[in-house]
Design a protein around this nucleic acid. Sequence first.
DNA 1: TTATAGTATGTAAATATTTACATGTCAATC
DNA 2: GATTGACATGTAAATATTTACATACTATAA
Lengths: 192, 192
Amino acid sequence: MRTLKYAILGLLMQSPVTGYDIAKAFGPGLGSFWSAKHSQIYPELKRLTVEGLIQYSVVMQGERMEKKLYEITEVGKEDFMQWLLQDPPLEPTPKDVFRLRSYYSQWLAEEDYFQLIQNQIEKRMKKYSYLKERLDRHYKNVDPVTLTGAARGDYLVLSGAVMREQNYLDWLYQCRDLVSRWVQKNPQRCDG
Amino acid sequence: MRTLKYAILGLLMQSPVTGYDIAKAFGPGLGSFWSAKHSQIYPELKRLTVEGLIQYSVVMQGERMEKKLYEITEVGKEDFMQWLLQDPPLEPTPKDVFRLRSYYSQWLAEEDYFQLIQNQIEKRMKKYSYLKERLDRHYKNVDPVTLTGAARGDYLVLSGAVMREQNYLDWLYQCRDLVSRWVQKNPQRCDG
DNA sequence: TTATAGTATGTAAATATTTACATGTCAATC
DNA sequence: GATTGACATGTAAATATTTACATACTATAA
């Protein structure tokens, strides 16, 4: 379904950007629900250009260095709008290696699985904090009703990302709780 | 990182199964966090066999139809256990086309985006109900502390899947709320 | 008996994505 | 003056995944 195509066209709806800018956009912001490496972005930009959905102008950066500033064409806008209105069936559930490990956790010593959860909590906590900070920084003292333009979508998905991470952490706490109670239930393995 | 390999080995840790069984397992159960089509499963089974991590015996089904019953080898078990103990860095956030659409929702008429949310809620609700039913059916009158074996992992990820869907719905309700308030704020477009 | 749905296994081709290879400029600071 | 990190753009190869092609048996119910 070429979603990368529409992720890129959507960025270009806002303003002209370079491939490098797109790669950056797929970092912390958009990156909470879509991303791509530059090695996928540059070929896609080339393809979209051939298809006439975007076009670029060469801009000098300093003396020698040239960059390509891409903008969306009218045809591209129509194509994007047509996609935006689509209502496709639910995607298959996203893959999650930690959940997969948890599913098979019966084969681990409880202590080992407990440690994995603990480590996962640490990592998730960092991610959560980062997102929460971003949300607060931009929207803490703002009534969401007053938002307009790009800030609307940004707020919707950023708050959604925070909720998602909060929820993942809640689940991890629950797992940790349960595992520690399983440990307590265990017949003591003594070595003394 | 060949996660499919370990998803399959994990299934075989429990009991010998056919490729068809594995494809089924990636349906409603495991499917809440990992899945693969049969066209990916059969080649992977072949590869794992060549690598000596699994082996199969041919079993007759009826008169003519033969199926391959795969079981995990000792080497396979070791490989699986080694993977299970790993603690890799956080995966990139899973992609989500609906969130991508939401990010770009500024280009939609509020009414159109509202309708997309509404439809998404319906679909997500069905998925949530299905998972919740499964959870209740298996674990409603059970103290999770008493669970053992495969039921532990099953409970952990199933309850996690229910939480995740609940959370997604909460986010959708929030989006719907906000969008409807944006609509109210709008200058009325009259055609009379 | 004859559809039909489900069981069962594969390959081929296309698409999507990641990792590695490869190069060069610019701005700042040490 | 040299190093470093960010800017900037690409290709190649490998891996992962989906869609489509392809076949054939089994059990059940109409």
